[in-house]
Simulated scan of single mutants.
Amino acid sequence: MNLHAPLVIDVAGHSLTTTDRQRLAHPLVGGVILFGRNWQDRAQLTALCRQIKAVRPDLLIAVDHEGGRVQRFRTDGFTHLPPMAALGELWMRPDRREGASALTAMNAATATGYVLGAELRACGVDLSFAPVLDLDYSESSVIGDRSFGRDPRMVSVLAQSLMHGLQQSGLGHCGKHFPGHGFVQADSHLAIPVDRRSLGAILSEDAAPYGWLSASLQAVMPAHVIYPRVDARPAGFSARWLQEVLRRRLGFTGAIFSDDLSMAAARQIDGHAVSFTTAALAALQAGCDLVLLCNQSVVEAGAPIDEAIDALSRSVLEGQWQPDPASEERRLALLPLSPALPWDSLMISARYMQALSLLPS
């Protein structure tokens, strides 16, 4: 077992190259994140996942696959999943029977989680970066219908239901974006959003689902958002947010992923432009267990990935960063515990067929 493998990297194409295999074999690499460019069809995706596991069975294979507009695989039999806002709308639908709409929405959320998870697992994927726990203040275009809704109680219950479906399928999950991205307008892919509310206001609203779901969430991804009344650094680089608030105050014990360190909001810390390596070290030192370096295999033949691996290796040798066995335990806990149902068997299974019938139209 590795002492700690925090880097989650990407690969460029439909199959692994010799260079991909060399990178994935490095003991500091703990996983792969897949994108639309890695998709041709189910057979190809399944073969790619097998190639990754052949390099190292403990490598975590992850993808952003939420439903709605954030769904990497959409053809060759994959179900077009509803955005999470559709489940929130189902919850709010008028019904003469008190609470009936909420129960219908919860059942639909569990079904959505099962379909999402079972289809990915059948192709060899281990984890999806879902559910979105951000509240919808109708301000953020990057969140929007990815959110279940505005009420943190409704968001928590529907997320718990979705996570139950994911758990039934065997797929790992990750709640995002702690402590909340929905209040700010700026897109952290392009700029650094700033949320000037107090810690108390954020804890009572946006961060509330993380406390209520702390015993259920397997992983959490912090936001590349600055909350200056709490810390001058974005949450993903803030020990106050990750260790003091998320771990100690809210009681979360699972894995913490950084958001993509190639995003604009991740490349500025304390007012200074930083490299991937500096950002990765800052995230790890703040309390992240795993750090994402996305879309870098297609930049200069993946040179940024090689630089990050080499620099992190040097930081270990020079004592700038020490691998954490507890972080490695949290990473390994995200791997599936049982074999997935093959696609053809899934398509005729009673549970899958019933789940499809419960999806919002």
Score class of each variant (00 low, 15 high):
His80Phe: 01
Glu139Trp: 02
Arg121Cys: 09
Pro193Asp: 12
Pro152His: 05
Met84Thr: 08
Met84Ser: 12
Met106Glu: 14
Met84Arg: 01
Val157Thr: 12
Arg121Thr: 03
His177Arg: 07
Phe73Gly: 03
Met84Phe: 13
Ser188Asp: 03
Thr112Cys: 15
Gln160Arg: 15
Glu119Cys: 04
Ala191Ile: 00
Gly149Trp: 06
Leu116Thr: 05
Ala159Asn: 04
Leu166Asp: 08
Leu190Thr: 11
Arg74Ile: 14
Asp151Thr: 03
Ser140Ala: 15
His80Met: 11
Ser169Pro: 06
Gly67Met: 07
Val63Ala: 06
Glu119Asp: 11
Phe129Arg: 04
Asp64Thr: 09
Arg96Glu: 14
Ala111Val: 13
Ser140Gly: 03
Glu139Phe: 04
Leu133Lys: 09
Ser188Leu: 11
Glu89Arg: 13
Leu162Tyr: 13
Ala109Ile: 07
Thr104Ala: 15
Ile143Asp: 00
Ser141Pro: 00
Leu60Gly: 04
Leu171Gly: 00
Gly99Met: 11
Gly170Thr: 07
Leu116His: 01
Pro131Cys: 08
Ala130Leu: 12
Cys123Asp: 15
Asp126Arg: 01
Leu60Arg: 10
Arg72Phe: 04
Ala109Tyr: 02
Glu98Arg: 13
Asn107Tyr: 02
Gln160Glu: 15
His177Tyr: 10
Ala105Gln: 02
Val194Glu: 14
Arg150Ile: 08
Gln168Lys: 14
Ala109Gly: 02
Asp187Asn: 15
Val125Thr: 07
Val125Pro: 01
Leu158Cys: 09
Met106Tyr: 02
Ile143Thr: 03
Asp126Thr: 07
Ala118Leu: 06
Ser156Arg: 04
Gly170Lys: 12
His177Ile: 02
Glu66Leu: 08
His177Ala: 07
His164Pro: 00
Arg72Ala: 14
Asp187Phe: 05
Tyr114Gln: 01
Ser169Trp: 08
Gln185Glu: 14
Met163Gln: 13
Thr75His: 15
Glu98Cys: 08
Leu87Phe: 01
Ile192Thr: 15
Arg97His: 10
Ser128Asn: 14
Thr79Trp: 04
Thr75Asn: 14
Leu190Tyr: 13
Ala111Pro: 05
Gly149Val: 10
Val194Trp: 07
Ala102Phe: 04
Ala85Leu: 10
Asp145Pro: 04
Met84Pro: 00
Met92Pro: 00
Gly180Tyr: 06
Arg74Phe: 03
Met106Lys: 12
Pro82Leu: 01
His177Phe: 11
Leu162Asp: 01
Ala102Ser: 13
Gln71Ser: 10
Tyr137Glu: 06
Val70Arg: 10
Ser198Glu: 09
Gly144Thr: 02
Glu139Val: 15
Gly165Ile: 12
Ile143Arg: 07
Pro83Ser: 12
Cys123Ile: 05
Ala118His: 06
Glu98Met: 12
Ile61Arg: 05
Val157Phe: 08
Ala85Asn: 04
Leu199Phe: 09
Ile61Asp: 04
Gly149Glu: 11
Glu119Lys: 02
Arg146Lys: 08
Ser140Cys: 14
Ser169Met: 06
Glu139Arg: 14
